[in-house]
């Protein structure tokens, strides 16, 4: 598998570290009624057969965090963008 880093260009998998699901959102509330939202955030992940948005870190290259859209069935990479949109601007 190769990932096309928006800064460095196409690089091999060994240069990257996988962090995980890019779609989960950290709950803002610390109140006790947010327990369910926190449980979802910390423990539960979807396991789609198909497109998945995930965070990768280009540790051996430009040190940018990337959001990669990957097909979990084929490992085809559909899109790669900076996780922080301000970067690279």
């Amino acid at each position: 598998m190769r990932i096309k880093c928006p800064y460095c260009g196409e690089r091999a998998l060994e240069e990257f570290t996988y962090r995980g699901d890019a779609t989960v959102k950290r709950p803002r509330s610390l109140e006790s009624d947010a327990a369910e939202a926190w449980t979802d955030y910390v423990y539960f992940r979807h396991n789609p057969a198909g497109l998945h948005r995930e965070h990768w870190y280009h540790g051996a290259g430009c040190h940018a965090w990337l959001t990669v859209t990957r097909d979990t069935r084929t490992h085809e990479i559909v899109a790669v963008e900076f996780a922080d949109k301000r970067e690279g601007t």
Binding site: Y7, C62, H63, A64, F82, E87
Partner: peptide, 21 residues
């Protein structure tokens, strides 16, 4: 440079190593 290239300034080379770096 905003990409992976080297730019030479007066007495100093600047090599793009990452976004904003």
């Amino acid at each position: 440079p905003e990409r992976s290239i080297v730019a030479s300034g007066r007495d100093i080379l600047f090599i793009g190593t990452g976004p904003g770096q």
